[in-house]
Lab assay of single mutants.
Amino acid sequence: KELVLVLYDYQEKSPREVTVKKGDILTLLNSTNKDAWKVEVDDRQGFIPAAYLKKL
């Protein structure tokens, strides 16, 4: 599985998104959309803007 590093805090703005903190390391589920990547956070799945993430 692929991991990503969170570069900036992000507060979810819709039910399809998830809230993350800078420095979190998350499982990347889908990065086919260049604008928003799907990740898993504490058994929740949701989207975060790709600009907030860096592949490890």
Rank of each mutant, 00 (worst) to 15 (best):
K1W: 11
K1R: 14
E2Y: 12
E2F: 12
E2R: 14
E2N: 12
E2L: 13
L3C: 14
L3I: 07
L3F: 14
L3P: 02
L3A: 05
L3N: 05
V4G: 03
V4L: 03
V4R: 01
V4F: 03
V4T: 02
L5M: 10
L5S: 03
L5Q: 07
L5R: 06
V6N: 00
L7C: 08
L7N: 01
L7G: 00
L7P: 00
L7Q: 03
Y8M: 14
Y8T: 08
Y8N: 11
Y8C: 15
Y8P: 00
Y8Q: 14
Y8S: 09
D9L: 04
D9R: 03
D9G: 05
D9Y: 07
D9K: 03
D9P: 04
Y10G: 01
Y10N: 02
Y10A: 01
Y10M: 02
Q11H: 13
Q11V: 14
Q11C: 12
Q11R: 11
E12R: 14
E12F: 13
E12S: 15
E12P: 13
E12Y: 07
E12I: 14
K13I: 07
K13G: 08
S14E: 09
S14C: 10
S14P: 06
S14Q: 08
S14K: 07
S14G: 12
S14L: 08
S14W: 09
P15D: 12
P15M: 09
P15S: 11
P15G: 10
P15I: 09
P15Y: 08
R16Y: 14
R16Q: 14
R16W: 15
E17G: 15
E17Q: 07
E17N: 07
E17W: 09
E17S: 08
E17H: 09
V18S: 02
V18K: 02
V18L: 15
V18W: 10
V18D: 01
V18G: 02
T19R: 06
T19I: 05
T19M: 05
T19W: 05
T19F: 06
T19P: 03
T19H: 05
V20F: 07
V20P: 01
V20Q: 00
V20T: 03
K21T: 07
K21H: 10
K21L: 06
K21Y: 10
K21A: 07
K22Y: 04
K22T: 05
G23R: 03
G23W: 05
G23C: 09
G23F: 04
D24F: 07
D24Y: 08
D24A: 12
I25M: 05
I25E: 01
I25A: 00
I25Q: 03
I25V: 11
L26K: 00
L26P: 01
L26S: 01
L26T: 00
T27E: 06
T27D: 03
T27P: 08
T27W: 13
T27R: 14
L28N: 00
L28C: 08
L28W: 02
L28V: 06
L28A: 02
L28P: 00
L28Y: 02
L28E: 00
L28G: 00
L29W: 04
L29P: 00
L29N: 02
L29M: 06
N30Y: 07
N30D: 15
N30P: 03
N30E: 15
S31V: 05
S31H: 09
S31Q: 08
S31E: 10
S31N: 07
T32S: 14
T32R: 11
T32H: 11
T32M: 12
N33I: 06
N33M: 09
N33D: 13
N33F: 10
N33G: 10
K34R: 12
K34W: 10
K34D: 12
K34G: 10
D35F: 15
D35H: 14
D35R: 13
D35I: 12
D35W: 15
D35L: 14
D35T: 12
A36R: 14
A36I: 15
A36W: 15
A36G: 08
A36L: 15
A36C: 15
A36N: 12
A36V: 15
W37S: 00
W37V: 02
W37G: 00
W37A: 00
W37H: 00
K38F: 15
K38W: 14
K38S: 08
K38V: 14
K38E: 15
K38T: 08
K38C: 15
V39E: 00
V39M: 03
V39T: 00
V39H: 01
V39I: 08
V39A: 02
E40C: 14
E40F: 07
E40K: 11
V41D: 05
V41Y: 09
V41I: 13
V41W: 08
V41T: 13
D42R: 12
D42W: 09
D42L: 12
D42A: 13
D43C: 13
D43S: 12
D43M: 10
D43R: 11
D43I: 06
R44H: 07
R44W: 15
R44D: 03
R44L: 06
Q45E: 11
Q45D: 06
Q45L: 07
Q45M: 10
Q45T: 13
Q45A: 11
Q45F: 08
G46Y: 15
G46T: 10
G46V: 15
G46K: 05
G46M: 15
G46D: 03
G46R: 05
F47R: 03
F47Y: 14
F47L: 07
F47S: 04
F47C: 12
F47H: 06
F47V: 07
I48C: 08
I48K: 01
I48E: 02
P49Y: 06
A50M: 06
A50H: 05
A51V: 12
A51G: 12
A51R: 15
A51C: 15
A51D: 09
A51F: 13
Y52P: 01
Y52F: 12
Y52E: 00
L53D: 01
L53T: 01
L53E: 01
L53V: 09
L53C: 11
K54N: 04
K54L: 13
K54R: 13
K54D: 05
K54Q: 13
K55F: 08
K55C: 10
K55M: 09
L56Y: 08
L56N: 01
L56C: 13
